[in-house]
């Protein structure tokens, strides 16, 4: 019983982080119609910088309970790479989507080496600092409080994004631009600045996701190219461009991973691809996406 509960919590934690990165991917695709392969690289960047900033803070003698806020700051700071990259992508907005995809692939290649240059080739980790918040224990079920905080943070992010998109003027503006760029432009929306804001927000969701995951698992060079595929699975399952879809997709992928670990470990990542393919074939718009193209 507790084994299942543990797995479930592990799955939800994974889903929480996945959701953040996938939400960034969705935002950028929804508004700018670009599939950003570099979102995994943002995730890795956030993770590495999170380690650096936490290590730095601890050396300065800051109390350990500041871990979560420091990681959040690390993620937000790294979103600074967003605007210059958006500027680069601007050169191909009017081109075929294959060029846009390729340019983000070029970014993936470049980020691999930037990370290697700054942080070295070996995986890095924080040694269980996340246990500073203690563990919750019921019987033989025990969860680090940190994991619960991250789940809560992701939930709050989902809530605020939906509030932002639905209730604020700027959110409506974003949705209008996503719906019909030409129309939005004709109505006087500064699409250029909207794109810059959206891309930076998308970047931030990725870097924050990476920063938050790093106390529980190591940061490595491979995480960029592996995580993007999982995030991509999430958005395909949920529906390209759909925020609720990202949430549902993330939960599904997170839980499937957790479940297959007990049932049949070989099937772990395989199960996700099978579901992705099934969704693409039978419901290409995704579970919560708009009607098929």
């Amino acid at each position: 019983m507790s084994l299942i509960a543990n797995l479930l919590l592990g799955g939800i934690f994974h889903a929480a982080v996945l959701f953040l990165v996938a939400a960034g991917l969705q935002l950028v695709f929804g508004v700018q119609k670009i599939v950003n392969l570099a979102c995994g690289s943002f995730y890795a960047l956030g993770a590495y910088f999170g380690i650096t900033l936490v290590t730095l803070a601890m050396n300065f003698g800051l109390p350990a309970w500041l871990l979560l806020p420091i990681l959040l700051v690390a993620g937000v700071l790294m979103a600074a790479v967003g605007p210059p990259i958006e500027r680069l992508l601007r050169t191909v907005y009017d081109r075929d989507e294959s060029f846009q995809l390729l340019l983000t692939f070029a970014l993936v290649l470049m980020f691999q080496d930037v990370l290697r240059l700054v942080w070295g080739a070996n995986p890095q980790s924080l040694n269980n600092v996340h246990l500073v918040y203690g563990k919750l224990t019921w019987g033989d079920l025990s969860v680090p409080v940190y994991n619960l905080l991250v789940i809560a943070a992701a939930g709050a992010t989902a809530f605020f994004i939906s509030l932002f998109l639905r209730r604020t003027n700027y959110g409506r503006l974003l949705r209008a631009t996503a719906e019909n760029r030409a129309m939005a432009e004709a109505l006087g929306v500064n699409v250029r600045s909207v794109y810059a804001v959206v891309f930076t927000l998308g970047t931030m969701l990725g870097t924050v996701g990476g920063a938050l995951v790093v106390p529980t698992s190591a940061a490595s060079l491979d995480m960029a190219i592996e995580f993007v595929i999982e995030a991509f699975a999430v958005v395909v399952i949920g529906g390209l461009g759909s925020m609720p879809g990202a949430l549902v997709g993330a939960l599904l992928v997170g839980l499937i991973r957790a479940a297959s670990l007990v049932v049949y470990p070989e099937f772990e990542i395989l199960a996700i691809y099978v579901i992705v393919i099934a969704v693409l074939l039978f419901r290409p718009s995704g579970l919560l996406g708009k009607a098929a193209t």
């Binding site: 680069l88 060029f99 390729l102 340019l103 070029a106 970014l107 470049m110 691999q112 080496d113 290697r116």
Partner: peptide
């Protein structure tokens, strides 16, 4: 760091 340069070349070609 050859990957970085390859990435830059790809970006330049695309653009």
């Amino acid at each position: 760091y050859w990957r970085f340069i390859l990435g830059a070349v790809l970006a330049a070609v695309v653009i």
